[in-house]
Design a protein around this nucleic acid. Structure first.
Lengths: 206, 206
DNA sequence: AAATAAACTAACCAAATGGTTAGTTATTGT
DNA sequence: ACAATAACTAACCATTTGGTTAGTTTATTT
């Protein structure tokens, strides 16, 4: 007896997976229903049979994408750990997540930018308050003189930028650094290895 | 007598400006020709009168967008300055450029991601060799023990990430940091002020 | 095994969208 | 002043695209 999440017809899953790939690569308007059907190797009518409309199918892909990336941030940042350990752990675990879903950040940010109110920003409604404890933790450590002298918000943005942007900027960085796909992936691996310590080093006062 | 670049009918310019805004906000496929015409307050036929096709109009917008952001990087990084001053100057000037064109990074990266071969990557063909001197400069300073102990490429990616990502990630950061548009702009201003020194501090060994 | 429902297909449809055309108005050169 | 060209408009067209329908095959239930 399979559980509810895996108890879907293989066709439905094939459709979703194809839709995920194509929506993430080309965005809502760039994606063609026929293209999704082709990739899923099913008749185009099946898309509507299982998901009714392009908008509905997209919404599922979009929501899953957001869910995979956003809640993890607050989840990891609210573990009960001293700041330094928390930073190290967060950097490592969040890099793992992005590496497993490298197309999501650009996809989600592009769609958010197009329509900032999609589902009243969905998922983003209460994230602010969930990040507060972490920002507070930084502020306290800063008062104690344990961190570098920067506003907590700037530190937060620094951390996220260093982790996420190398994935979003991939095509440009590949050109700038003269790397092919394989080389750039190795570069990302190297980055994953160094980032936990590096982030600690630029946040905590030495 | 106006020079060639400004000697265009006001209609043509209005179209281009409208197209720029809409393409940058919604991407190639998300943009509607009618919408561009409406924003430019002209008849839709004028779009084709001056630019022949959506693809051609888009290409002009895209190329201008790339030209505004990419060549400046190598230009600024190849000024004949000691590393520390160069970093400070680059951070300040490049932040100015992004602030003046805050929608371009996400737009360009989304389009590049969709079609990595658009115009055989245009503009990106020779950028690698133009960045080499700067990477070399870092490597030399690193050998002398003047920089933090990181590969030059990682340093380069760090710098670009810290500058650009706050613009791309705006909708998420606004939610996370609980800021409205005005507050976030102030946050960006603060960031612009601190980044030159900060970047120096995380690259040069103290 | 018959009946019922679910999964699937091919053909078709309507709306949206980029693009054209034929003609009108305004501008420019002589 | 007038011919010629450029700028512009409204109506229309062809294709693309998301979506539907009517019917067929496959699986399930009793």
């Amino acid at each position: 007896m399979e559980d509810k999440t895996t108890d879907q017809s293989s066709t439905e899953l094939k459709i979703f997976e194809a839709a995920r790939e194509i929506f993430q690569a080309k965005g809502l308007e760039g994606a063609r229903m026929q293209e999704i059907a082709d990739k899923a190797e099913i008749n185009k009518s099946m898309l509507h049979y299982y998901y009714r409309s392009k908008a509905k199918l997209f919404e599922k892909v979009y929501q899953l994408s957001v869910i995979k990336m956003i809640p993890k941030i607050t989840e990891l940042l609210n573990e009960d750990l001293p700041l330094e350990q928390k930073l190290r752990s967060f950097a490592d675990k969040y890099m793992q997540i992005i590496k497993a879903n490298p197309d999501i950040p650009l996809f989600v940010l592009h769609e958010m930018n197009k329509d900032p109110n999609r589902l009243q920003n969905f998922m983003l409604g209460h994230i602010g308050e969930k990040v507060q404890p972490f920002l507070q933790q930084i502020k306290e450590e800063r008062k104690k003189g344990n961190t570098v002298d920067l506003p907590a918000e700037q530190i937060m943005v620094n951390i996220m930028s260093l982790m996420i942007f190398p994935f979003i900027g991939r095509p440009v960085f590949k050109a700038i650094l003269d790397k092919d796909e394989e080389n750039y992936n190795a570069f990302i691996e190297e980055r994953h290895r160094m980032l936990p310590d590096y982030i600690v080093s630029i946040v905590m006062k030495k």
